[in-house]
Design a protein around this nucleic acid. Sequence first.
DNA 1: AAACCGCTCAACCGCATAGAG
DNA 2: TCTCTATGCGGTTGAGCGGTT
Length: 519
Amino acid sequence: MISNSGGGGALSDDATSGMGGNGGANQGLKKGPWTTAEDAVLVEYVKRHGEGNWNSVQKNSGLSRCGKSCRLRWANHLRPNLKKGAFSPEEERLIVELHAKLGNKWARMAAQLPGRTDNEIKNYWNTRVKRRQRAGLPLYPQGVQKEALHQQQQQPVLSHSSSSMFSPFLSSPQQTKPSFNPTLSLFDQVNFTTSANPISSHANSSFLSNPSSQFKFFPNNNAGYTMPLSPVSPFQSSMSSLYNHSLTPSQLLSQSPVQFNSGSFDGSFNLNQPIVGSQFHPIVAVPGMNLKLPASPSPLQQTTSASSGATGDDYMISQSTTANTYVVAQPLSQDTSGLLDDMLKEAETLSRNENSKEENCVVQFGNAQAEDNSMAASNKGKHVLDGIVQNGAGQHMWSAYGNRQATPENQWADSCAAQAHAGMKRKKEQMEEIACMDDDLLSLLDWHHGYGDVSIGQLTNGIGANMGLDHTSPFSAPAATTTAATAATATATATTSTTNPSLKQGMESCEWYTMPSIC
DNA sequence: AAACCGCTCAACCGCATAGAG
DNA sequence: TCTCTATGCGGTTGAGCGGTT
């Protein structure tokens, strides 16, 4: 949009003179690229008068630029200590991390990158998004994803940053009450595709692995849950959305009786779209809907690294022959197949270790690696499958938390526990944000605390405890009714945990931060 | 050599917010 | 409390450049 008033684009320096005449339409203000002469004038002005009061630049310096333009020019190009040139690897890493934490808060990101401007960062990021989207790579390296999630979990529930990645829907006027913030969710783990809104072109959307997706959740109808749509990226979604749909508590409760129990859920999944690569697609799990495997009908228990009918990057969901245990399996790339047995053995060992739940919880994060490392590992075929565990039926479950049961409560507890040691890092900011919370969120919180089945404290205290899934809990309800694999697994976990101690969760089997590190 | 294509980056636009009067 | 103004922020645009066909 570099266009001067004459409609021309980026012009050379002589455009200045050319612009003079046409500027009349804009009160003599020039648009388009800055000339060196203009830069000099602006620099001189700032030297004399300092920054700010940009509108007076035109008056006092004779520069035919609006204040906005002057400020932008100064901030992005003329101010001292600006770094020019390509981002260093360290800066790139930082940007990725910051974006995972902050979302599209370019100015805040720029504040963390001395000498860099928000515009630069924004451009870099958009380029990166394009590039990685095209390449079918996840937007975030595995390590960053994990860290970002960790940080999200560390944030107190009440402190949803107004500038956080999820804030848009918190404050969205379109939002119905109560809307669930992903960070409130216990189930913000698994990404799926939507059957209600199959947008094939989204298949390669790297947004789908974006933990900072700016979700918007709308109630669709009585039966199901809409695919979250975002004005930022309509492709963004995650399983978390399914737990953050806009339903009233009563709706939740009415639908809560975990329809993935063997009764109402027939045990078949149908992902309308294959989950390809490391991307997952939002899924609308309408209660009662059948979910079937898109790529391979084979149940996972028949699927080993060697026998898997899935292609290297296909994620699979299958049902256990024993319990209604639904498992989302990580794609087992052929590169990894040679290691699978070892990993399975290791996972099996882990699964037997009933006392190591807490420690195993950390395993997944311990596997977080820098992008380069992940790439290296991936290239070497040493793809880390976090916590592959095996249930009693020989079903391999790819578990993000190792053998720790991924009940919603546990995840919630994880979050709370993480918060507990997270420190009060952003306390001030968070307090400000709390003050800015809108009624919607407050309503949500009221509701949230009104349902006492699972309070934060309980959940926190429940870490490591053998907490069954409370099917009447509003927290279990969305999971059960909206997410096939996760909910079913959670249900199965709850229903079989006492009879099958080795059955471990597969709840987080498809989460963005446990995706193959192919970055 | 020319056409095409994709990428980068500078700049603009609209909206939101803060502060002053 | 309201209005106006200045500033900040994020999204978008499009020229220019380099690579490819």
